[in-house]
Design a protein around this nucleic acid. Sequence first.
DNA 1: TTGCAAAAGTACCAAACAGTATCTTTATGA
DNA 2: TCATAAAGATACTGTTTGGTACTTTTGCAA
Lengths: 196, 196
Amino acid sequence: MKKAEATRMTILQKAFELIYVKGYQATSVDDIIATTQVTKGAFYYHFKTKDEMGIAIINEILKPTLTNSFIQPLQNEQNPLDGIYNLMYDLLMKNEFLKVEYGCPASNFTQEMTPWNADFNKVLNELTQQWTEVMTATIEKGKKNGFIRKDVNAKQVTMFIMSGYWGIRNFGKLENSKKVYLSYLKQLKNYLNSLK
Amino acid sequence: MKKAEATRMTILQKAFELIYVKGYQATSVDDIIATTQVTKGAFYYHFKTKDEMGIAIINEILKPTLTNSFIQPLQNEQNPLDGIYNLMYDLLMKNEFLKVEYGCPASNFTQEMTPWNADFNKVLNELTQQWTEVMTATIEKGKKNGFIRKDVNAKQVTMFIMSGYWGIRNFGKLENSKKVYLSYLKQLKNYLNSLK
DNA sequence: TTGCAAAAGTACCAAACAGTATCTTTATGA
DNA sequence: TCATAAAGATACTGTTTGGTACTTTTGCAA
């Protein structure tokens, strides 16, 4: 039961990489088995359909990864405004798992799958929910600790920041340059300061 | 020479609608000719390839439409901050051409095509450039007229606002509700006020 | 009216697609 | 060690894909 689990993870890992680069629909099962060196029999032993694998990627690759890169950094810092800024800075400028030319995996999945696939919509919603809740909680904590004005609406601010993040990731794809990230970060800092 | 131009436009119009809903790659040429009632011979008489049609959609449908909905409203208003806010409000809440569940066509195209298709990248860049330049110019004018602080970086602000717009369009797809738009608009107003 | 190119219609192709049927190998628990 | 189920390999299927070859109809200038 050890090797089987390994091949399953290989499929998810490699398939994720292909999908991150080319998109879900443009990545065929044949592509995946070609780059993983896993045969079709093995693939369809582990996953009933391509979509089941897609859902598994979100649940087993994206969710844990996001938990590490998004949620933990936020919970560590005491000043939530610094925490949010540093998180964004690290995500955009330092993270080597995410490439500027390929955007944000969660955002890509959302844009591609959401309007016509209810299963994907559901898990992507859970994924986003997770992130939203933690950032909202961070802001609320900041209000109590005096770092943020009391009249600030935490949910609204969270949506605003996350939107900017998804959007600038898309602009990064278009320009294929991290320059646009710097513009976003500068203005994010201004915006965050206005919440003090 | 009149009827031919009409069928060409029918193809572009209907194909755009399909692509806006399903995405470019998920929309097949057979889909397009089925819904347009145009035969394959006619389709490939007007367009050498599917991609040539895709580029034509951006140039002949998206560009003129965006010129009307984005650029003109900005140039009319005298206070640029009001102009930008009203523009965003109209785009998100009133525009009946854009549907919350399908996001922003330009953003969708960018996310889907940009990393691996240089031709699409080029025209999408031009499209975005057009919008960026006008908004930047609006802000610069606002600085001269005293509506906006002199130390504000117009390009940065433009990128920040556009990112938020693209991002919130994506969140709208995910939640399938205009509620998230209201959060964005509220915080956009706060942000814009911080530029005074 | 007729000649001829523009425009549209029809039938087909090879490649790629997701998925299946069937067989063989590998691992593991009794 | 050996029976059995888990895991993987191979070859195939029916369908859809973008595109082509060829034919037919339409519109317009002379």
